[in-house]
Simulated assay, not measured.
Amino acid sequence: MSQLYSRTDLVAQRAQWRADGKRVVFTNGCYDILHPGHIRLLEAARSLGDILILALNTDASVQRIKGPSRPILSQDERAALAATLDAVDAVTFFDEDTPRELIAAVLPDFLVKGADWSHFIAGREEVEAAGGQVVAVPLEPGFSTTNLVQQILDRKQ
């Protein structure tokens, strides 16, 4: 089971992982309704290193990005679910619209996003400038939180 970190504690822990020679992988997102596409992306990300950090958008950040009806699950519920996943070693939150500042503070060895974000991966410049790699993982076809929400709404009608 992973641990929930504040930004300050995560940066300090990252320094320890670096000293221990651990390869750190970072990914982020809303993870509003956890689905198989999320799990497969997290497993692919984790396979790149020793430690996987999952940064979750806060509720306020999700609302700004996705609209007032989101998130479906609160940030605490999303963090609790993510913390149970074997692939995830650390969970944290970010309130900004992108995790660029958090990524710049953590400077992971690998920054991973789903291929749907390959046109813009926040933190790319910082990670690459520090010698890290940015990886866009192919998405699992047929899985999207937005589509799942729409399917649920369509079934209610």
Score class of each variant (00 low, 15 high):
Val127Trp: 05
Thr146Ser: 15
Glu125Ser: 13
Gln16Tyr: 00
Val134Met: 09
Gly37Trp: 02
Lys66Thr: 06
Val106His: 05
Ile51His: 01
Leu73Gln: 13
Val25Cys: 12
Asp109Phe: 07
Leu48Cys: 05
Asp86Trp: 06
Leu41Met: 12
Lys66Pro: 10
Tyr5Gly: 11
Gly114Ile: 03
Ile33Ala: 08
Leu4Tyr: 08
Pro141Ile: 07
Arg124Thr: 13
Gln13Asn: 06
Leu4Pro: 04
Asn147Trp: 08
Pro108Asp: 08
Arg155Met: 14
Asn57Val: 08
Asp109Met: 13
Asp20Thr: 04
Lys113Gln: 09
Asp20Lys: 04
Pro138Met: 12
Ser6Met: 10
Gly21Arg: 09
Arg124Phe: 04
Thr8Val: 15
Gly67Tyr: 00
Asn28Asp: 10
Thr98Cys: 12
Pro141Thr: 04
Lys113Gly: 00
Ala80Ser: 14
Ile65Pro: 11
Gly132Cys: 10
Gly131Val: 12
Ala12Tyr: 00
Arg14Lys: 12
Val106Trp: 00
Leu107Tyr: 01
Ala115Ser: 15
Met1Ala: 12
Asp76Trp: 09
Leu54Arg: 00
Gly49Ile: 10
Val127Lys: 09
Gly142Phe: 01
Ala105Phe: 01
Ile152Met: 15
Arg70Thr: 06
Thr146Lys: 07
His119Ala: 15
Gln150Trp: 02
Arg7Trp: 11
